[in-house]
């Protein structure tokens, strides 16, 4: 028990997580990039055209992973915001702050690629159905937490306010997911869901799943970089960071303190 507690304590301290995030980065980034290349090649070239939608359905390989990531990133943000609210762990606040802009950009991507798909297939760029509207609300929730942080100077108060908004807004995530089942929408129901066999041919499903996994790993790669930047920003004046960087010899390009990875990144 005490071992676990100690481990948790170390993991949740900025000082200890800084090198961990750096060490994890290549393990997320390299598989993500390899899978993105393979998935794009499969999705754009190898996978056959759809029997109804022809080649336009190839937007699915970026649209669905972006939409999935928009919700997953939100949960990462909301959970870390909640951890900060309850346990006041600074690192959780940094994680929540880091996840917000990534999530917002992928929410925008989900909306934009969906629009580019809707125009040729549905015949419209946008409709105010429950799925599209709730995804737009998600974008506003992200922007709201980012704006709150920008508006409040005091770091602790900003983190608490953003955490609370993020937590309250989390109710929107299941609404997005189930909107296509609860209400009649123009948007079709999920192709891939946990509860039933996917309604997609395997030649298309494999690249879609690979792309979704690639986006997920990519998110964590970017998250690691942003967390490191956040720690550097917040702990600027701390002794351990000075020891790590400032007191290093002048030849900064060749010397890597403690074999610290990610320096050349």
């Amino acid at each position: 028990m005490s071992v676990i507690k100690e481990y948790w304590h170390k993991l949740s301290s900025a000082k200890h997580f800084y090198p961990i995030a750096g060490a994890l980065l290549p393990w997320f980034l390299i598989p993500a990039l390899l899978m993105l290349i393979w998935g794009s090649w499969q999705g754009l070239v190898v996978a056959p055209a759809d029997y109804q939608q022809g080649d336009s359905y190839r937007i699915i390989f970026v649209h669905v992973p972006a939409a999935w990531l928009s919700m997953m990133a939100y949960m990462v943000m909301a959970i870390n915001g909640a951890i900060y609210l309850v346990w006041k762990i600074k690192l959780a606040d940094i994680v929540a702050e880091s996840a917000a802009p990534i999530g917002a950009s992928f929410t925008f991507l989900a909306l934009a690629t969906g629009s580019l798909w809707g125009k040729p297939m549905w015949g419209t760029w946008w409709v105010w159905d429950a799925r599209l509207t709730s995804e737009l609300v998600l974008l506003f929730l992200y922007l709201g937490t980012i704006a709150l942080r920008g508006a409040i100077d005091d770091r602790q108060r900003a983190g608490r306010a953003a955490g609370l908004l993020g937590l309250v807004g989390a109710i929107n995530v299941p609404i997005i997911h189930f909107s296509v089942e609860w209400w009649e929408t123009l948007h079709q129901p999920a192709t891939v869901s946990k509860f039933s066999a996917p309604s997609m041919h395997s030649s298309m499903l494999t690249p879609l799943l690979v792309m979704a996994l690639a986006f997920t790993l990519f998110f964590f790669a970017v998250l690691m970089v942003k967390i490191r930047a956040g720690i550097l920003e917040q702990e600027r004046h701390s002794r351990w960071l000075s020891a790590l960087y400032a007191e290093a010899p002048e030849t900064t390009t060749t010397y890597s303190p403690e074999g610290e990875p990610g320096r050349n990144g």
């Binding site: 980034l29 993105l36 794009s40 754009l44 055209a49 022809g54 080649d55 336009s56 190839r58 937007i59 970026v62 649209h63 972006a66 990534i102 950009s105 992928f106 925008f108 991507l109 934009a112 690629t113 580019l116 798909w117 125009k119 040729p120 990519f218 790669a221 970017v222 970089v225 942003k226 930047a229 990144g265």
Partner: peptide, 28 residues
Amino acid sequence: AMGGYAIYVWSAWGLTALVMTANLLLPL
């Protein structure tokens, strides 16, 4: 040509590439 859907498919993929590249490079 993407079966006549070139504008839509390539815009969507291009936008995705742009957003992901920015997501990675700016924090680095």
